[in-house]
Structures are given as C-alpha cells and as structure tokens.
Design a protein around this nucleic acid. Structure first.
Lengths: 233, 233
DNA sequence: AAACACTATATGGTCGTACCAAAAGAGGAT
DNA sequence: ATCCTCTTTTGGTACGACCATATAGTGTTT
C-alpha cells in the first residue's frame, strides 16, 4: 500500500512521538542523524518532517530544530483549522460554523444550570464581574466576553471542550474581534451575559438556553449586517 | 516571517485550489511543470506538495498525479482525525470524545423534537424501520444504527453536521464496530431508538433528550466494560 | 481494419552532492 | 570571568541523476 518510504518514516516518528519515546517539547534529532537512523536520503527525511509538521506533530521554525508536539485536543483543532479557515470566506461558511458553536453552548449552559457547583458558579460570577468592569474599555471587554463564555466550556471538565472553544474563537475572530464596538453594545452584551448567569443560578436550563440563544443570535445579526451585508441568506 | 519558499508556494497553491483556479478532482500539473511556474527546484515543489497532501488539499497515490481536493467540512474532520486517533488509546480519550458526541446529539434530538417537519419525521421513521428489520443481522444492524443517528445530523441542514457525524463514527469505530453483538442487544438498541423517535414525534424535547442520553450511556457502559475493563475511571 | 505486442516517454519516488546563511559551540584575547 | 572571533552544526535550497511504472504512441500480426 504505502510504497513511499517517506510515509513509513512519518508513521514511525509519529508513533515515537505518541509513545513518548520522543519527548514533548524536545527538539527532534538533526536531519542528518535521522538519515542514518532510517537509512534514507535527506530528501525522504525532509518529506517526512514536512508531513509531520503539517499534521501538527512538530512545530518547526526556519533554521531551528523541529520541536516535538504530543497530540492533544488543541492540536487536533489546529489541524482542522488549516482547512476550516478557507471555509469562512462567505457568510454561509461562517454561519455554519457559528451554528456549531451555538449548538455547543446551548448544552453547556443547560448543563451548567443543572449541574454547576458552588465553585463553578463563583468562577462564572467572577468572569461576569470582570466583564462588567470592562464595559468602558472595548478591547478589554472583548477579552472578558471570550473569557465568560470559556468558563462554560471548562465547567464540564472535559479537556476537549476548552480546545473546541479556542478553535471557535480563533476561527471566528476575523469577524468578531474586528466588529465595531461601542459602550452601548458592550452594555447590551453584558446584560445578556448576566441573564445567562442568572438563569443558571436559578437552575433553569430552559431559560438559560433561551438567554444564550438570543444573545448569540443578536451577535450574529450584528456580524452579518457588518461583514456580509451584500450577501443573501 | 516564513522565509521558506516552500511555504509561500504551499500558500499559493492552496489559494489556487480554494479560489477554484485549480479545479477539484483534476490532477495537479506535473512537478517539473510547477518548477518552472514557480521558479523553484523540485525539492521545494515536492515539499510544498507534501505539506498540501498532509493538510488535505491533495490526495496523492504513489506514481499518480496528485488530485486536487476542495476543502469542506469533511476534509477538516479528516485533518483533525490524523491527530485524534492517537488520543483514543485509553478509555479517558475515548470517553472525552464520546461525551462530545453525546453533547452534540442531545441538541440534535431536542431540535428534532421541536422543529422536524413531516419529511424529516418520515426519514427518521424509515431509518428506524430499517433498523428494526436488521435486528437479526448484527452487521446490518450496526449499519442501520449508524444511519439512524445520522438522520439526526442531517435534519438541521447544516453541512458541517454530517461531516462531524462521520468523524465520530470513524474515530469511535475501533470500539463500537467491534463490540460483540447479539440479537438481544440489537433488540435493546432498537427499543432505545424507537423511544427517541417517539419522543420526537410527541414533540417532547426533554423526553427525547432523556431517551438519547440513556441510550448512549448504556452503549458507553458496554464499550467500557468490554474494552477498558482494567482501567479505573 | 482490428487486435495485440512492443517501445518511447512522462512522471513520481529516491538518492547524492553541493552550497549558503544563520545559529550554536569552541577557543583565545582582554 | 567576559567578550569577541572562528569553526562547526544545521536547516533551506538547488542541481543532476537514476529507477519503476503508467500512459501514449508505434509497429506488427492476424
């Protein structure tokens, strides 16, 4: 099947990384050393390294030894991101992705409403307070906005969730982070966050979900009218 | 920043693919032609092609011209899959991923319960009937099981959802498709599907979600006890 | 004329060598 | 010990060559 020797070397190194034989964060052996180790030419070695880099198992800067990266949820998101960013050049692609985010957060707020413990609520309240305090500073407000939503992704304790959140934020950033902001809009957004928080506090998943959906749909309407005004739905 | 000329060529070709200049399904120009076009050595061209292949923009078989692949949601999933499959060698990784799937389907059944139209319900019923008819044939039952869940991912009309479903199925297949099956278990699973369908039919999102969660948790319990009996939670 | 066999060519896969520029390490001067 | 200089290491790029195979083109056979 895989007659290419570069492929088998890629797999070999991949396995060495996953198994921990090649330690995360450490640089890979030099290319000329790998030639000997695998009995292949440098061409082949470099092809394998290129593939591994594109797959996210190595981080390589020009003129430095590639750094080994253990796969985790966030590198998986990053690998997907290379493709996803090309899907976001029209409102359709952005909306499809945004819908996935909405779907995700709907469950998260429901679960927060039914299952959040005292600590979770404290974190959420802290993020909400930070958000309120930043109303006057639009740049900081955006950061605290993201942070507030992120708390929802951390409550469940699944390490994949925060990675997914990071993906959403990065991919949607071209639109969201560049939205024209105003103190009035910040205030509206804060009120939406507060409504979500209070519904969670009241242990009312339906209300929390409604508040979230309304919040995110309002946000989408703004983005759409700002960046995709010319396109039809 | 990116001093490597291979990187800029990679980006160039990537853009040509996304823009449609290089048509999907058509083979790429020969390497020696690309050398001239970009004024670079074959070494560099080949590195670019390797990277593009790993990123999912090209499908290359040995000794054939690489085939151009337009990025879509499913190629994004595939790119992530290269990393994700390494996270699934223990129950923790599998469970984390499975939880994402559960989260996803919880919303899907809720939305189906509130928003499915007559056609959607007909499709779902059709999938359910196929599922019932296959109870005696475990292999076919697994296929109809997957198909039933897939209907939920198609109802919403977001093209990303079916791609995500495909990802879940492929990544979780090592466990699920290899589960020991019996007519009794098939019957139980069918009953669970039926309960979900009926809750959707009754327009009861809470009941539908409950039925789904119970179904998926039962399934997880089986998988866990079969494949990860030795590990602690 | 049609079917087959054969040859030439195009193409991807691999190898080796060479050179450059920048980074890292070694060694000596202060 | 500190700083500067020189050498070595290392990744990035280039060129040329050879192999195996798939495809196209040619010629032969029936």
């Amino acid at each position: 099947m895989s007659e290419r020797s570069a492929d088998s070397i890629t797999l070999n190194i991949e396995r060495s990384i996953v198994s921990g034989e090649l330690e995360e964060g450490r640089p890979l052996p030099a290319e000329r050393a790998l030639m000997e180790q695998y009995g292949a030419s440098r061409t082949v070695i470099r092809e394998a390294l290129t593939a591994l880099t594109a797959k996210g198992f190595l981080k390589s800067r020009p003129r430095y030894r590639p750094i080994v990266c253990r796969p985790d949820a966030s590198s998986a998101m990053q690998a997907a991101g290379g493709v996803i960013k090309h899907l976001l050049d029209n409102s359709r692609g952005v909306h499809d992705l945004y819908q996935v985010r909405v779907l995700f957060e709907r469950v998260l707020v429901r679960d927060a409403a039914t299952g959040a413990d005292k600590d979770d609520l404290k974190y959420l309240k802290g993020a909400l307070d930070d958000n309120e305090a930043a109303i006057g500073d639009s740049e900081r407000f955006y950061a605290t906005d993201v942070a507030f939503h992120r708390v929802l992704y951390t409550i469940a304790g699944n390490p994949a969730y925060p990675a997914i959140h990071t993906g959403f934020v990065e991919w949607l950033a071209p639109q969201w982070s560049r939205m024209p902001r105003s103190e009035q809009r910040n205030r509206d957004n804060f009120r939406a966050h507060k409504a979500i928080y209070e519904a969670i506090l009241m242990r009312d998943p339906d209300a929390a979900e409604r508040a979230l959906v309304e919040h995110l749909e309002t946000s989408w309407a703004f983005v759409r009218s700002t960046f995709f005004a010319g396109e039809r739905e």
